[in-house]
Design a protein around this nucleic acid. Structure first.
Lengths: 279, 279
DNA sequence: ATGCCTTACGTTATACGTAATTATT
DNA sequence: AATAATTACGTATAACGTAAGGCAT
């Protein structure tokens, strides 16, 4: 039987057009590639190339073989990818979230509930999370919308409500509630890697200069500067203690996100203790 | 990247349950197989087996890998099969027929029309011919019915009419026509490898003892014995000259077969000169 | 003259077999 | 004791690189 490496070589020859170029791409000598293709032909008992003295070209059989080879090599790569993903999924729980707040709560919970498994987490866009779920990359994804899809289960997680975090001296600090537009145009501190929140605040406050900061820098600057910033009910619960700031709810409907936990249906039993803990 | 031979080995291990048995099946030493599987695991970066000291078992990852491997190996075999079939189909014309008569006429015609191609022919049941057509094994099949199927083209070829071939002394030799039932119970000479005709005569003459003969023996015995036998209009045209026999048409409707030429639609142009010659 | 493919020849890497080792039934 | 898997070690095969040769542009 021929081998996968020969099919990969065939694909390279097909792409490059000449043995020499393909050999270079494969980090192989031309002669080795030449003989490898001769062996492939011998093993298939078929000529794949029309050969002139200094020129080689795929014939019809060869083009057909290339199509098959493409599929086979692709499937082999897919096998490696899926088996590795499955192996990871057995030893680790990878949580993906569209926003940072769920990752302040869920991974620590999981660490306690599944002490023998590695908990990792990623912040990604909802579409990437969904396709990652389907491929078994994520064991759990937190999305800003409910999902109804065969093979996926979905449970309501919780809501996050956005707050402005203003210094007491700020002219609007006395309000009971504010709209995003009320502070549009001011300069604000913003935590980086906010996931879906980034889109929301940039869209609704197009004239605001955001000074985007890393975690530690953000907290330091919030404490030491008079610039307005954001927080949320989840942020107040899991991140900052009470400080010299006045937190005012944002009244826009977009400022409230409802999170859903989405996971592969077959993982329901496995994750049940998490959902109990979340209630 | 892992190689196909490792996937085949994995499948053997999965089937046999132990390395030793799989190694025997693969004509390989156990140690070689053991290391080969270790390499496969290393290349996939995944453990596929749970190992006790003298026992090896596929784990969940391993079972998953086996499923993938099965598909890949099967696809590789399919590639070899299809490419070889395609190659043959380019260099030869393989005609399949449900009955011998069309093979007396068509292959000689093809030999003249396509002198650079090898003409071969086979006698097979209609179902085998159809699936062979779909797989590209046959370039042309002669079937006893019309076929309407995407990808296949079908043209009327001709009819074959069955005759009893009786010695003049036979009591029924004066008739203008006979039914199969009229000779049911007599002993008859029968050419072997009659394809679809076999079913017909056996069904309609269940009490007849058929002395089935090879080609040459059949002709000799027809000439030298007083036993009734069959012939047909096509047989009279392509096989036997006029002899000391009286040929009487068989009147049963089943004794007339209409043949159709069936071929892959894309071969229409290629075969057009054949169809002209047949008209 | 340069680029490209093939063949010849010697070398290396890798998969293999034998045999020893350990553990289980 | 028999069966089964792994490891160690030497070997053989198969793929490789270098180099030479031929042909075409």
């Amino acid at each position: 039987m021929f081998e996968l490496y020969q099919l990969e070589q065939l694909l390279a020859v097909s792409e490059c057009g000449t043995l020499s170029q393909a050999a270079e791409q494969l980090h192989l000598s031309q002669s080795a590639l030449s003989r490898s293709m001769q062996r492939l032909e011998a093993e298939l008992q078929v000529t794949l190339f029309t050969r002139q003295k200094n020129r080689i070209e795929l014939n019809e059989c060869g083009r057909m073989a290339v199509e098959h080879a493409r599929r086979i090599v692709e499937q082999a790569r897919d096998m490696a990818f899926r088996v590795q993903a499955f192996d990871r999924s057995q030893r680790t729980i990878l949580v993906g979230s569209c926003a940072p707040a769920p990752l302040w709560e869920i991974p620590p919970l999981l660490s306690g509930l599944y002490p023998d498994r590695i908990i990792s987490s990623e912040l990604r866009e909802p579409e990437a999370l969904l396709s990652g779920l389907r491929e078994g990359v994520y064991q759990l994804a937190v999305l800003p919308f409910a999902v109804e899809e065969a093979g996926l289960a979905c449970t309501l997680y919780k809501e996050e409500h956005l707050f402005f975090s203003l210094p007491p001296a700020h002219p609007l600090s006395g309000r009971k509630g504010l709209y995003l537009n009320d502070l549009n145009g001011e300069t604000m501190l913003l935590l980086n890697r906010l996931g879906i929140w980034e889109t929301i605040v940039h869209q609704r406050m197009p004239d605001t200069r955001f000074l985007v900061q890393e975690d530690f820098a953000f907290e330091t600057l919030v404490r030491s500067s008079a610039l307005p910033s954001f927080t949320s009910d989840m942020g107040l619960k899991y991140r900052e203690g009470p400080r010299n700031r006045i937190n005012i709810p944002v009244l826009d409907p977009e400022a409230n996100i409802t999170y859903y936990c989405v996971y592969r249906s077959e993982a329901h039993k496995e994750l049940s203790s998490l959902f109990q803990a979340l209630c």
